[in-house]
Nucleic acid binder design. Structure first.
Lengths: 154, 154
DNA sequence: GAAATTTGATTGCTATTGCAACTATCTCAT
DNA sequence: ATGAGATAGTTGCAATAGCAATCAAATTTC
């Protein structure tokens, strides 16, 4: 259908639409692989990863929400579930009694270790391996530039 | 926390994580702009776009689901909503009586035209404008390569 | 050409998400 | 100190998503 609209040009369109496609493909694929192999979703895996990156395998909820790119309420419930299945613990913060830490349990640590192998293999297989070193660096640089610009205030 | 795990190396990590970040940032930003300016979500906008690209502004449901990267059941309900607000119509397919077309209404056409301006401006502002011509082409090429590899059967 | 299989699409159900509202605690200006 | 406002986190609620089951129509098989 002809719209006479101000569409994106070819390069712009290819960049934007392929971003949506890559994200969708990889997210679904990696999620499926994790669920099949380890019984956790990609979303849950992300929580474990970012928790493990904090000191002592613990992170404040707000920080974790930001790292995992979801809302605070969404994170509350994801953590609730991970606590229920024994992969995380919650710990009150002593310096700020409003605060809560998510803490990796030994079981969570085990699970993360195992899942990371699957995840890393998936990322390499479905994305990294399709690109040359140069292409990968160009991709990382371009994407990071966009992230940085949009992260700054204003 | 030290995990001794087979993590991604620096470039791999930067490429992969920044992809997640860019997608999240842009999706949320563009969605918010469309909702504010035109009262439709980005997901709904995508349906209108891909519908308009079919002959006579009409597309079969299955094809539309694939283009908009969601499940068929998800699409059924999105289209239901867009029909309810008058932006789409449903039309039975005569050659295959199982089939259904989503068809853009005149109102939907208007809405798309208006929303496209907002959307295109957003994509340019939040992504395209942060990159040089060369960077943008490298980004598009790399992402498309990944998409193509993962789209092929096998 | 009837039966079996496949395909197109929708529906029931459940899970996940975010927004807005809420509680609790902290900070700061006066 | 105290009261106003900011911040951390959780909860109610409604919207949206996908899977599995279902129904209808087309296609294949024998």
């Amino acid at each position: 259908m002809e719209m006479g609209t101000n569409w994106l040009n070819d390069v712009e369109m290819r960049a934007w639409r392929s971003m949506l496609s890559v994200h969708s493909q990889l997210y679904n694929q990696l999620d499926e692989e994790l669920v099949k192999a380890h019984g956790i979703t990609f979303a849950e895996y992300e929580v474990l990863v970012h928790t493990s990156e904090g000191p002592g395998g613990s992170v404040r909820m707000a920080s974790l929400a930001e790292a995992t790119l979801i809302s605070r309420s969404g994170l509350t419930r994801r953590v609730q579930h991970l606590v229920a299945v024994g992969l995380l613990e919650r710990r009150r913060c002593k310096e700020d009694k409003r605060g809560t830490f998510a803490v990796l349990t030994p079981l969570g640590c085990e699970k993360l270790r195992a899942a990371a192998a699957t995840h890393v293999r998936g990322v390499r297989e479905h994305m990294i391996s399709k690109l040359s070193r140069v292409e990968l660096e160009a991709l990382a640089d371009a994407l990071e530039k966009v992230v940085d610009h949009n992260s700054e205030p204003g």
